[in-house]
Design a protein around this nucleic acid. Structure first.
Lengths: 238, 238
DNA sequence: TCTTTATTGTATCAATTTGCTACAATAAGA
DNA sequence: TCTTATTGTAGCAAATTGATACAATAAAGA
């Protein structure tokens, strides 16, 4: 079944850039449509009876299996040439649907971009009926994305780098407990540059948003690092 | 004439928060619809054959008489309850039009917010056929705005405060030549807090984006301040 | 058990930036 | 010439950041 017009807003959609961190690399979720070779960001339409943000959350929760999610809106894309009916036609065809030329999903769309930083290990990527795969891709090794989705990813990255200074953003990218090195790696990967180990540690600790736990014995032949977690309460009150 | 559906995108609009600086106060442009007592931000719809950004620019140029304008997108508002057909009905009624209940402008809208900082003295506020006045209002003495336009203004302010640190934002709020005190006033008014005179001066000068010109003799019984202008080239290369 | 090795947590001090105070240099009026 | 209100900048203290050093491990190997 194709989505029916009276249920959804026309000419508006959302797209999401979902970031995960493997410990080494920053990845995002990209889905591939069946029998088309088309890669796209997870996105969707907005039902007439739901908030824009809720629509986006619902979409992402379905694709990730997460029960809660924090989305950050970063930009809305409305260039004339960003819409292109061909991919949608191809997708419908790949699914075996006949799509009339005047179907509303073939019309021009303005799309609202959201990003989210989530714990890579908590996610179960779940394809929907339109896509036959959804997978993590290294931010530096993305497949060619359809329409302007590549540009959307770039804007999301810019936005994150901007927001990184304000609130402790690593909150959701790492498991509950993590080492200082892992946290620094997150920052280094997002900013795409090395940070001074000692200065970073001093800075983060002085922010007073971390709780120190037991040590982590990895078996490596050196001093074991402490584990930390974020102090959600103190972060709220900032 | 009411706007016709086939010319515009449905369910999407834009609204703009246009800031001007009098030398003392930060003001924004607010329009009032004829015979309704409704105050609103300048906004509009997007033609099917134009970019979102161009639509917004065109709208603002009409209302301000400016020939060039820089708009900064800051947020898109898509709450379910933000749309309300009553104001539009009232506006149409005030204009003497009969608006059918299923007219597309009465439908739910998601609106993209843009802000702009412009030279107060260059502007000729120009009402359109739907509004009988468009005027500058002190940011702290706004009339009650319709729908969620008050919230939109707040978000715009937040965005500006955020952007203030990055690029020299006063560029367009002041006339070409200005004194250091005026520039500081702009920052103080936007941030809504006093800044240290000497520290501000040192900081701005060290950024190396100002050109110093002749002195300004105001007739006041004290040392005359220098006039400055922004060095657009150096700002570009930052 | 004693070395060896890699890494972690801090201390320390230099370099830079910011906060604060002081003061000389005016314009114009008295 | 004296007075007054600002302006521009110097100078030093306080806070932040950069860079280096070093003690304290954890585990492997001699």
């Amino acid at each position: 079944m194709l989505p029916s017009e009276n249920k959804y807003l026309t000419n508006v959609s959302f797209d999401t850039v979902i970031f995960g961190f493997t410990g080494e690399e920053l990845k995002i979720l990209v889905l591939e449509y069946q029998n088309t070779g088309l890669f796209a960001l997870p996105g969707g339409y907005i039902r007439r009876d739901e908030n824009l943000l809720d629509a986006a959350k619902k979409g992402i929760m379905k694709r990730t299996g997460l029960k809660t999610i924090h989305l950050e809106q970063f930009h809305t894309f409305g260039k004339l040439n960003r819409s292109n009916p061909e991919p949608s036609k191809k997708i419908a065809k790949g699914l075996g649907y006949q799509m009339p030329d005047d179907h509303w999903v073939l019309d021009r769309f303005i799309t609202v971009g959201y990003y989210s930083l989530i714990d890579y290990n908590q996610v179960r990527p779940t394809p929907n009926k339109f896509s036959d795969s959804i997978n993590w891709y290294d931010i530096n090794k993305l497949p060619p994305l359809m329409m302007d989705h590549g540009e959307i990813v770039q804007k999301a990255l810019e936005a994150i780098r901007n927001d990184l200074g304000k609130k402790p953003i690593g909150t959701n990218l790492l498991p509950k407990k993590f080492t200082m090195k892992e946290l620094r790696k997150v920052y280094e990967t997002i900013l795409d540059k090395k940070l001074r180990r000692t200065t970073f540690q001093r800075k983060i600790l002085s922010m007073d948003v971390l709780i120190r736990h037991e040590k982590l014995y990895t078996g490596a032949a050196n001093k074991a690092p402490y584990l930390y977690s974020f102090d959600k309460e103190k972060i709220e009150n900032l």
